[in-house]
Amino acid sequence: MTEVALQAVELVRRIEGVVSHTLVNGIDLAVNKGEFVAITGPSGSGKSSLLYLLGLLDAPSEGEIMICGQPTSKLSETERADVRLTKCGFVFQFHFLLPEFTSLDNVLLPMRAAGRMTEGEMRERGLALLGSLGLGEHANKRPNQLSGGQRQRVAIARALANRPEIIVADEPTGALDTASTEQVFSILRDIADQGQTVVVVTHDPALAARADRRIHIVDGKIAEITERCGGELVCAAVS
């Protein structure tokens, strides 16, 4: 039986104001453990909003998000932070590395915040992660000494630091050249193949095609779900 890593039930995100605006409008979604899901859609369709909800960066107006079976709607902000720290890894369009820190220190940041390992164990894991992403020799460099692709790979290493169940990536290749884009996507694919769940928002249909499942969002709703079947993506559902 397939284990569900991430589940959204009747998810709604509404921005209240003089004119209220619904970003996510009643989405039901389940992502299995080790699955690579790509969320696509036109600008303003609500795909990033959905991603932030799934990663507990934002709180839904209605509905429930369950991470590894654990409901999160009643969690306090501190508890949500703890879930983010231990169960989610974030990769953004821009690397968002701390500029004063070296690559290694940036990777160590989530581990140090969690405080579950000794300094030696953390350094060992940090160096191993950087090494596995081809950044071993750049461990002591600061972000401004790295290329865009290298920075994004450091950001991926940082996202993997606490061995999260779920990697959430918001257009991770949006600011990269073609070679770096290919490299980053391959890494994310490998991560999913090794059993971690990856949810990626992307504009790039070619990249989305490499996911296990593609969810197309329009106006805050799922418009189409495409699943991999026998090596090909086939339409599974259309609303």
């Binding site: 960066l57 879930v83 720290l85 989610c88 915040a113």
Partner: peptide, 16 residues
């Protein structure tokens, strides 16, 4: 501000 947002998104608590 950006670093603060990132640290919070990584799971660091607000008071930390």
């Amino acid at each position: 501000r950006q670093d603060i947002a990132i640290m919070k998104s990584l799971g660091m608590r607000e008071y930390a």
